[in-house]
Design a binder for these strands. Structure first.
Lengths: 110, 110
DNA sequence: GTCTTATGTCCAATATAATGAACGAATACA
DNA sequence: TGTATTCGTTCATTATATTGGACATAAGAC
């Protein structure tokens, strides 16, 4: 079946910013595209797509590349992420594990 | 050729956090997995993988889902992203468009 | 406790990303 | 300005994500 995705404005913007952050990180560190691609174990073509802000690349790959050039996600380093992870686990135990009433209006403000 | 990826600790942590943020966002809004999947035009299986923090899903899809449940990357909304985008463009014009010396040591501190 | 629904998981089929090679064009440095 | 190198792009092949269906289990409502 044909997939045919569409992406919202914010998503496209976020992808674009992300890609540019990576490119800036790479060039300021004096790495060629091939260099970075090799370190990330991906092809130069895929890296190019990432820097271009394409929606297709796998998120794990993009995150890995970002880490290699010092682009932080959630403004967090390793230890901060660990803490955040633990907090989210806590939060999830308090939340219902399964959502009941599917016919409810979406709570969009808070 | 076999691909066989490996992911660093930070990457895994970030993926995990991201997935949990999405799940928290979804449940607090009272949406079922099927609900959210339908809105994002993806299968429930893929959404499950995203919430699990799997590295495979396409980054565009994950960003889209995140936006749907109010999870922001870079703590930025649409207009902020636009500004950031412009700044990065500016920055990129100042940077060399192509990196020369590939045999240089990586500048890791700044 | 019962019952209904959401979730976790597996699967074969299909769509798509990843690869690596190739080539021209742009770019940096002597 | 010359020139080696990096970048942007296309393409066929290969690897993998996505899908939708199915089923068992968990969880919430009564």
């Amino acid at each position: 079946m044909k997939r045919k995705r569409s992406y919202s404005r914010v998503t496209k913007q976020a992808l674009s910013v992300f890609g540019k952050l990576i490119r800036v990180g790479r060039t300021t560190r004096g790495m060629t595209a091939q260099d970075l691609a090799d370190r990330a174990n991906i092809s130069r073509t895929t890296l190019h797509n990432i820097e271009k802000g394409a929606p297709g690349p796998e998120i794990g790959t993009v995150f890995e590349v970002a880490a290699l050039v010092g682009v932080r996600l959630f403004d967090a380093d390793d230890s901060t992420l660990t803490v955040q992870n633990a907090r989210l686990d806590e939060k999830l135990t308090l939340l219902p594990k399964s959502v009941r009433v599917s016919k409810q209006e979406i709570d969009d403000d808070f």
